[in-house]
Design a protein around this nucleic acid. Structure first.
Lengths: 239, 239
DNA sequence: TGCGCCATTTGATTTATATCAAAAGCTGTT
DNA sequence: AACAGCTTTTGATATAAATCAAATGGCGCA
């Protein structure tokens, strides 16, 4: 066992200081809380780190924790019986993990590279909400955002061509790339197979379309999978 | 104009009586309210009816209303620039329409057959919630359910074959078919083109796969598009 | 009853993407 | 530097689903 349930125990280091120093302060679902409420909420949190490929949540596991990504990227995916995989979302810093409704998780969450997550027990959220009901509105906001993204992805999976899918994917990544404005290069965090599993394609189709976009001079790829979008608006037209 | 915004005005007939007589009492997001709160909430509601094909919500329109389907089925869909359409969800009685977060609707909602909706102004939800915060948890529950369904559909669109898609669709319909247990026949509410737009297929592929399932004796179709699932478990294996 | 208008089905063909296969590129290690 | 074990790319071919086209079926209405 190396997922949240087994890793949560012990050595938390909650407290307002941590939350005020939080790298996603203002993005996370706790951002709606005022100073007083935040202090109380902060005490409930624990931070956990994960390394590339580590399972964070497992389908079927009891829904004990809700989390907020403070660093890194996670992939959320489902599996069919025969092993076919579909990534149903990518989680970026500030994004919420899990929910406070279901009895069990119904998907897998895996770290893509190094990941840090701020965790809260679902049961503690409930008692906290008794005096701070605004936390529900905040969680609702995050859930609504996830629903909106999922619906955009339904259109992509149902109606877009392979090349349109790749273009949309690159633009999605560029939106979440928080590097300097002048430096347009960013690292593609996923392997080709993972991109395929996100876009409902095969690895070969992904690779061919990357090559095609390079030939069309819309993108360039540098050492270590660093990507530069050469013609942003042309890519947008394709997507 | 023939959508909610234009139809809401005037002749509402709120009050507790209506809500207690509500056909989806216990299913809708208002079901979490106790008798006292329900009376207050009920006074805020208006009921509207729509006929087949009528637009209920329009993309880009200001998000003024949240609704609960009390009767009939709606389709929620998005369009690409070139007219390609993807149905992102079907709404059944008890399902929530819209949200209380976004500034604008970002999809279209259209009546499939005769539809009745119970409407609330988003702004009134906010003031109601000041004294009845449990309404947020209730709306969160509905939103979370929609997210869960959207994610199931991502797997369907991204990774399932045409025949698997049709099988999943028929099973989805049968779950929402609230007719008598003995009578297994139900009407398919969507046209072939709409089914195609829901499953990310073309009308011809949908038709061919219906024919194929009929040849395999897994389903039967009677007059007026009444459908009988002959071999439920075989269909489940395919889905 | 028969006509017109759709929706659906079926057939023929094309095509985008998957599949199968092999070569080429990386990266870390000895 | 050379090798092992990957990932990615490219090529050849197959195939599921799309496209193009026509026939069939239903249903309301004059």
């Amino acid at each position: 066992m190396n997922n949240i349930t087994s890793l949560y125990s012990g050595n938390g280091f909650g407290g307002l200081d941590k939350c005020n120093n939080c790298p996603v302060r203002g993005l996370s679902f706790c951002s709606a809380l005022d100073t007083l409420a935040l202090e109380e909420f902060s005490a409930l949190s624990k931070t956990r780190s994960f390394t590339d490929g580590q399972l964070i949540l497992t389908e079927g596991e009891v829904n004990e924790y809700i989390g907020s990504i403070t660093e890194g990227i996670v992939k959320v995916y489902k599996l069919l019986n025969d092993g076919r995989q579909q990534i149903i979302s990518l989680g970026f810093p500030g994004d919420m993990l899990g929910n406070i409704i279901d009895a069990e998780y119904n998907y897998f969450v895996e770290a893509v590279g190094k990941v840090k997550i701020c965790l809260y027990r679902v049961s503690r959220i409930a008692s906290f909400a008794a005096t701070n009901p605004e936390i529900y509105l905040s969680i609702l906001g995050k859930t609504n955002q996830q629903l909106s993204h999922a619906r955009d992805w339904l259109v992509l999976l149902g109606r877009k061509t392979a090349k349109e899918k790749i273009a949309s994917f690159l633009l999605l990544l560029s939106e979440h790339h928080l590097g300097s404005e002048t430096d347009q290069a960013f690292k593609i965090p996923l392997k080709r197979q993972e991109i395929a599993d996100f876009l409902g394609l095969t690895i070969e189709t992904v690779s061919r379309n990357f090559s095609s976009l390079k030939n069309q001079q819309l993108i360039r790829e540098q050492a270590g999978h660093m990507l530069i979008i050469v013609d942003y608006s042309a890519l947008k037209n394709i997507s």
